[in-house]
Amino acid sequence: MSKRIDVSDLNVYYGDFLAVEDVNITLDAKSVTAFIGPSGCGKSTFLRTLNRMHEVIPGARVEGKVLLDGDNLYADGVDPVTVRSQIGMVFQRPNPFPTMSIRDNVLAGVKLNSRRMAKSDADALVEKSLQGANLWNEVKDRLEKPGSGLSGGQQQRLCIARAIAVAPDVILMDEPCSALDPISTLAIEDLINELKDEYTVVIVTHNMQQAARVSDKTAFFNIAGTGKPGKLIEFAETATIFNNPGQKSTEDYVSGRFG
């Protein structure tokens, strides 16, 4: 399953402070969209509004619409819990549950939705999800060991396996490689390329080469100065953003002149 996301006139506030202003963007199904921009420009904040994870932060609120195949995530009566089970998330630092085995980590989200599951079904899902995250061969002999015993890159892939096990429509990734070494980063990037066959993938990254390597479209966010809101400056095909950007600030950023 894969769905597209349409965002219109979205403002994000922390209390009274306007953090992200007036975003209009369409994220295509079965594609990878990258968000780039300098630190503090609101790209991670904006990413979190796509599955309502910003609500975890006290005082954060949103105005505007986010449509998942036409259904507004912020309509009255929509439960953020439901939203998050449709739109999965992978975080900056790998966060497998330390008290759970590798197997239980993969099944953590599934167990929330369907309480009872035959062991054979669970085994099949664990294998499918871990294979989907390119981790199966490395961990198949130690599924009962704690997930926290894996290397950082393996832990991050375990988190991706955990996210895809619940069969979401969209996967959000908030700088998924920033805590990883180059080899592990490569493994995750390969994985992102495979994930887009089935999922809508949105990735925030500080690494412009990474955005160029993995994404189909790129959105550039920027901030006018401290205390000013972050804005979506330009959104286009990745090749266009990197080779022939329409805005001066985009060109300055992707060519490394600031940020």
């Binding site: 975080f91 330390p98 929330l112 619940v166």
Partner: peptide, 29 residues
């Protein structure tokens, strides 16, 4: 309880109580 693990549970579609059982109580055992 690390925010990291609480967010991991919430991002999987856990309710607050499910998040507590998944991340908080095991950590605090």
């Amino acid at each position: 309880t690390p925010m990291l693990h609480q967010e991991a549970a919430l991002a999987l579609g856990a309710t607050r109580w499910e998040m507590i059982r998944m991340a908080v109580l095991p950590f605090a055992r």
